[in-house]
């Protein structure tokens, strides 16, 4: 039976037991963490489906189709980065940038999403990309297998909410992630969604005690939504180059503040 169906059928909605025996409050994280695994599992399934279509287009030399599929295919990966990044080897081969490699784009070790992005937008060619495409799909499948067997570390998951924002603040707001395609806003959307998912899952645990904190966090997520919505186009977003300077600053401020605030989430949930 396919995991996807079983997970969907499992419907691990958080049900707050009433009248259950007292249990250590720290264990209240068990249910949100289990739900997060379901979320990540569903995302990796979608990632595999999307990447299969994307790499097929690349291998078929359908440049326009491949370009159209590039940004949406990445979203499932960007949303689950806190977990995906736990596998350093796969993260490097799936999502490394040219400047992670000596010699940049010319380095044969530069593979994965951004290598294909470079070929599609800068070279306008898919020549020689078949092995890169095959490797990307194989890596994504391997990622899915590894995630299925992984016991999620709670501190990585809870810390992931801030880590995603930290990542945007440190290395993405500059537009360097998708430097050839300028599809950065798609990535941002996924990063924000991934971060917010974590906040939503743990919200019931801190709703009472941390109402002010959550209000600030919500306001900043909403600020981001408002800005991004201005740049929506079809299912996705316009080129990152269209982002006005003012909006980039406002986005930056919201992201930095979220990174700052969410860095306290682990501690608020009693995790070291």
């Amino acid at each position: 039976m396919k995991l996807k169906h079983s997970l969907a059928a499992a419907g691990l909605a958080l049900v707050l037991a009433s009248g259950a025996f007292a249990r250590d409050a720290a264990l209240d994280l068990v249910e949100p963490l289990a739900e997060y695994k379901v979320y990540v599992t569903e995302k990796t399934e979608k990632l595999e489906t999307d990447v299969a279509a994307f790499t097929a287009a690349v291998k078929a030399g359908e440049i326009d189709k491949a370009k159209a599929l590039f940004a949406p295919s990445r979203m499932s990966y960007e949303a689950i980065e806190p977990i995906a990044e736990l596998f350093g080897d796969l993260d490097a081969s799936i999502d490394s940038r040219a400047d992670d490699h000596e010699g940049g784009e010319a380095n044969p070790d530069f593979i994965g999403f951004h290598r294909i992005e470079y070929a599609l937008w800068v070279k306008s060619s898919t020549e020689g990309l078949a092995p890169v495409a095959d490797k990307l799909l194989a890596d994504v499948k391997e990622l899915r297998t590894r995630i299925a067997g992984l016991t999620f570390p709670p501190e990585k998951v809870v810390g992931g909410a801030a880590a995603l924002m930290e990542e945007v603040a440190a290395t993405k707001i500059s537009g360097e992630e998708d430097r050839y395609s300028h599809t950065d806003l798609w990535d941002f959307r996924a990063n924000f969604d991934g971060s917010r998912k974590i906040v939503e899952l743990v919200r019931p645990l801190i709703a009472k005690k941390e109402a002010t904190f959550l209000k600030t966090v919500d306001a900043n997520f909403e600020r981001i939504d408002t800005i991004l919505s201005k740049y929506k186009q079809g299912e996705g977003y316009v080129s990152y180059e269209k982002l006005t300077d003012g909006d980039r600053k406002a986005l930056s401020a919201a992201v930095n503040t979220l990174a700052e605030d969410l860095s306290k989430l682990r501690g608020k949930l009693g995790l070291d």
Binding site: L3, L7, L27, V30, P154, E155
Partner: peptide, 19 residues
């Protein structure tokens, strides 16, 4: 807190097994 991860993974396992 060391038990949170294993317990949530067991929760996922039970969900899968019961499904």
């Amino acid at each position: 807190t060391a038990f949170i991860g294993p317990l949530s993974e067991y929760k996922v396992t039970l969900a899968l097994q019961s499904s």
